[in-house]
Design a protein around this nucleic acid. Structure first.
Lengths: 254, 254
DNA sequence: CGGCAAGTTGAGCCAGGTCAACTCCGGTGG
DNA sequence: CCACCGGAGTTGACCTGGCTCAACTTGCCG
């Protein structure tokens, strides 16, 4: 019995996805870890309480989207980072240090890991250790890239970048150029440092120019990948690439 | 001879500062690592070339300030992150993935570590491993906090936050409320996503309100820590705290 | 099918970007 | 020792991208 994966782990992506942490544990390690870890099903908007975070500072995301959010005193909200299936958020030595809340942005399943057992496993299991390094480095670079986007890009450019970010990081099976946006417009706005109205307007602009096309609110097809890439990279004038419209009008009256 | 720290390590902060990586290595480990690592003295503006980064993807900062910079196609520059003494930047599996340049923002000394030896040491030396985890987590949270600042704070608030960031992270011995700003105004602007002109104006405003005082361009004293904190946290109206000035003028003419 | 949250659209405005001129400062050479 | 130079920082005047506020539409869930 102790050599079989625990019941609750059988269906968990952390276990059956070879890229994720739990799939690299020995049966014994899995049993140990599973035994004193706490799974938790979250709804959108639900937070992991500060006390829970203190007692269980390591959170593995099995499905859905988690976020770290900060609230300014006058109510402005910003989302510091997104976390998706496979990410392990390690708050050890930061739980006290008020660093914003951990909030689900969709239905999500998480597993709160025992720090002791986790530490032990990481120390002794090189495979698991490697996965963990990789994941943490990945989180770190994602955050830095995101900082850099926020710092100097204009609204349209930030949205374009975000679509590529979705394609690379936030889609389990990146097929073709259809990406799914896993969060609401409001959350997207707070993540990208803009207003929901602006998000809406910029998406409309991109769609009007035929660069993207929405199938549903949360599913977009990128029709012109190179052009969107150009925009994301801050090419001087994206409209130079759409020779119709404005340019023509000006020429017509010249 | 092999039990003594290598000549080049003796004076290095990474070795003599107990919080940093090399001070936790056994004499043999240090000798090994030192033997095939490359120290490098950098001037401001100098970059670590992409090839160098590929061959030596792990960089330990011994002194000075390093940065990761991104360039947009039209020349806009943004600084994704600062790194100071003790930080170890690990580009393994990211070196190819064009992720911007590594550029010194001041005179700096770095040590490029052999990935093989480094990996070995981290695997076998729990102390060193712990330091490394701590450092990487720290980098990661710094980047996320920074993202969150960039997303929703106004210029003045970003500067206020940055001063605290300096006090916590970027000052080796945080004494009193005098902090040193280790980079030029331009770099600060590119890090905070604003223009140097705006940086200048906002610093002036803070100084005129008596909240901070510059001793030199790179050394500021925070005269009113709580108020600066309020501003950094985005309190509704910072000027509510300075009952003089504008308010008075308006009243006078009312 | 009704009710409410999420998303969109429009009109007006302002924080901060842009551009150009000026000052300050440390280093260099006469 | 001073004159000069170039890069960094500052100041002022002007302009605009994106925020704000309010009204409207859409889509989701019971």
């Amino acid at each position: 019995m102790s050599s079989m994966p625990a019941e609750k782990c059988k269906q968990c992506s952390l276990f059956f996805n070879r890229d994720f942490f739990c799939s690299h544990l020995s049966p014994d390690e899995l049993t140990n870890l599973s035994g004193i870890s706490r799974t938790m099903a979250m709804h959108r908007g639900e937070a992991v309480s500060a006390e829970a975070l203190k007692a269980w500072p390591i959170i593995a995301v099995a499905s859905g989207v988690l976020s770290i959010q900060h609230l300014l005193e006058d109510g402005r909200r910003s989302i510091a980072a997104f976390f998706m299936a496979g990410d392990i958020i390690d708050f050890r030595s930061f739980a006290d240090h008020a660093r914003g809340q951990v909030i689900a942005l969709s239905k999500a399943n998480i597993c709160r890991l025992s720090p002791q057992v986790f530490k032990q496993i990481v120390k002794n299991n090189p495979d698991a250790q490697e996965i963990m390094w990789e994941n943490l480095r990945n989180q770190s670079f994602r955050a830095m890239d995101h900082s850099s986007d926020l710092a100097k890009k204009r609204a349209l450019e930030k949205l374009a970048s975000f679509l590529f970010e979705c394609r690379c990081h936030y889609t389990i099976a990146p097929q073709g150029s259809t990406v799914s946006i896993p969060v609401r417009r409001i959350d997207l706005a707070d993540y990208l440092g803009m207003q929901p109205e602006t998000v809406s307007r910029c998406f409309r602009d991109l769609e009007e120019q035929g660069i993207i096309e929405f199938k549903t609110l949360s599913s977009v097809t990128i029709k012109d990948v190179p052009l969107l890439r150009q925009i994301a990279n801050g090419a001087k004038d994206a409209s130079a690439y759409q020779p119709a419209d404005k340019t023509m009008k000006i020429l017509r009256f010249a």
